[in-house]
Design a protein around this nucleic acid. Structure first.
Lengths: 384, 384
DNA sequence: GCTCAATAATTTCCTTCGTCAAGTATTGAT
DNA sequence: ATCAATACTTGACGAAGGAAATTATTGAGC
């Protein structure tokens, strides 16, 4: 887990993780939260403080009725160690350096001419150097790098089995990048990485079950159930985009009919908007502009798309009953056009108490994907 | 956990559970399976053998190339203890006695005039006496009773929060029945109980993730993900029946549109068959008979229903990626009419590798629900 | 039959982890 | 100052597994 130590007691990991995700917290509170004796927490916290990962904050003011020694809450020393996160897309690398609390410290980009592996790896190496050797002097306190890639990724081996957008097959990405950068590398599917980030450091903190829906070119979904990420035994999970919500709907490239993505994916929206406006040269941004300007038929396309997404989200809520759902993604640049319809579709199809599940709908800051990648490498530190 | 003992080491529980669900298995194999040392397994198995829960089978014939001491596999002594399971429906009690391996030993029924609580409890008490004092002499070796009830049930407290079919609200069922029978009672939702049974003793054995779909008056679904039953944080989970698969479909009593249940629920099928045949007095069995006799329009109703169920199942596969799915339920009396269409709908809407998920479609023996209830009480023994 | 390699199970000793119970620390209220 | 309340620490202890040596039991090769 930590540089100096080989193995570490379960309680140490638990204490570290809980302080990390649930902020400054006293030893006694930790003991209650983790169902440990306070003695165990004291013992587990000591090495973490000695290694500089945790620190003791000044006593807080008393809360309750009267007396008692004030707690000295434990907090993460966020700048004890830094983590690089890079999201790899077909035409761009987005990189960040995060601290232990997954706060972004620096950002850098690289456009890619083609997603050809060797080319990407060279650019990636340069990007990492730029991030670590730029202002901030992160290099000395950075040992780990997380990569987020769309497609079928085996996190445990760091193998990219298949990435459709990048046209990569069975690429041992972890190994390759470790050789180039000298860092300890973790590779994860991009949606899972983002879900992890939200679960550990975002709105999903403390949730036993949680769903993240991304709206963009495709429509994806990451799931946390019983406190653990859902992986899917055939490598498929969270494919909310291919739930069929209209048996008479348009055919989808996947072979299905009326898939959410065939109605609300970016391509599908463009196609429908072109037809609705009678302008075959229309692009996504044009469609957004038209809808915002009050174009009825084009507005209806977004309405239908939002409703479809809402239906899909309701399917998630009905099936697994997450305690909250976050909807995000680059598609939500057109946030205002989607939101009411997502909510309407969700409310209509959510069954009983599932309709009470809180829905956060918000655009996604562009470096969020890279932050997700960094989060995965923070997790790797804890799990190691 | 066990009569004589208060607390029990984790390894003991693990060994017991694994032998229970994965049949006769040698200590060395157990050690590998559970990631324990063989010493630990030896130590854990001893008290279980002494208490009569496990026994050592005769050495098996060697398998491999040559030599080595033969294993003496550990097996459950299934008749060491018996468990009563009762499924409570609006008009009937179905009871069974099962052994430790959840094999049904005896069955008994009771018709109910009304689901009025006091009446049900009296009948239940009589049913249990009939089961335990009848042939087989189970009473002396039976300490536990499991109850399966539809609706919102809190297993940990044994409280029935709300059961729509029975018109029960906030009924402390566990407490009441423990008083009447003197047995240790566990109460669980019926679909979850059945899922548990299938996960421990049926086709779901060993699966990390697993789904059970029940087709009947309603359409339900139990989910096991990452080895654990999914409960849903708002008390809602597995509501496959209210996934919307047709935005232009019929309104559902839940307020949604085109829900699977509004197309493929028993009521919906009857209504559609009546319309298709132009005979408003038609009942479910008549519709089945007509479809089997080759009536085109009525056959189409079943086809549409099967397809809807298949789409819903595909949504489950796309979202959580179970390693197998079992489709069952009393609705599958019309098995032959549904099956091909369920498969077709599933194949069409399952995304990528999700389509490879094996689908078992089979009718449900009538006492299976009660067996599910008994299974839950077997689990309670292990967890206690 | 004897020896050896291979595998299964057990035993003994030991480490690790976390609890228990007692003690210290620090506060506000009386 | 004393006391109750709460937070934290300490040291002795015990339970649970692991490592390695030992015993058990087989088939193969001689």
């Amino acid at each position: 887990m930590f540089p100096e130590v080989e193995a570490v007691a379960p309680a140490v990991t638990a204490v570290f993780t809980t302080v990390l995700t649930e902020g400054p917290i006293s030893r006694v509170a930790l003991a209650r939260r983790l169902d440990l004796s306070s003695a165990a927490v004291t013992k587990a916290a000591r090495p973490l403080i000695e290694m500089g990962y945790l620190e003791e904050l000044a006593a807080t003011e008393r809360t309750g009725p009267g007396a008692g020694r004030p707690a000295s809450p434990l907090a993460i020393r966020a700048d004890r160690e830094f983590f690089v996160g890079v999201k790899i897309t077909g035409d761009e690398l987005i990189g960040v350096v995060c601290d232990l609390r997954a706060e972004v410290r620096t950002t850098a980009h690289r456009r890619l001419a083609v997603p050809q592996v060797d080319h990407v790896l060279i650019e990636l190496g340069e990007l990492v150097d730029e991030l670590l050797d730029g202002p901030g002097d992160y290099r000395a306190r950075t040992r780990r790098l997380g990569l987020a890639v769309s497609g079928d990724v085996d996190r445990s081996t760091g193998l990219v089995r298949y990435s459709p957008f990048l046209h990569w097959h069975d690429l041992p990405l972890q190994e390759r990048v470790e050789k180039i950068t000298g860092l300890t590398v973790t590779v994860e599917n991009d949606v899972k990485a983002l879900t992890t980030a939200e679960h550990w450091f975002g709105e999903g903190v403390g949730a036993e079950s949680f769903a993240l829906v991304t709206v963009g070119a495709g429509i994806g979904c990451g799931l946390v159930v019983n406190g653990r990420l859902v992986s899917g035994s055939h490598g498929v999970a969270g494919e909310i985009g291919h739930i069929g919500i209209d048996v008479n709907g348009p055919a989808c490239h996947c072979g299905g009919r009326g898939c959410v993505e065939a109605i609300a994916g970016a391509d599908a929206i463009v196609r429908q908007a072109q037809a609705a406006a009678g302008r075959p040269e229309l692009r996504f941004d044009d469609a957004v502009a038209l809808a915002r300007a009050g174009d009825g038929p084009v507005g209806a396309v977004f309405a239908r798309a939002g409703d479809a997404i809402g239906s899909g989200i309701a399917a998630v809520a009905n099936l697994v009953g997450p305690s909250r759902i976050v909807v995000s993604g680059e598609g939500l640049a057109a946030y205002d056009l989607f939101e009411p319809h997502i909510r309407a579709g969700f409310q209509r199809q959510a069954f009983g108490a599932a309709a009470d599940c809180p829905l956060s709908i918000r655009p996604l800051p562009f470096e969020e994907w890279a932050r997700g990648a960094a989060t995965v490498s923070i997790q790797a530190l804890v799990a190691a």
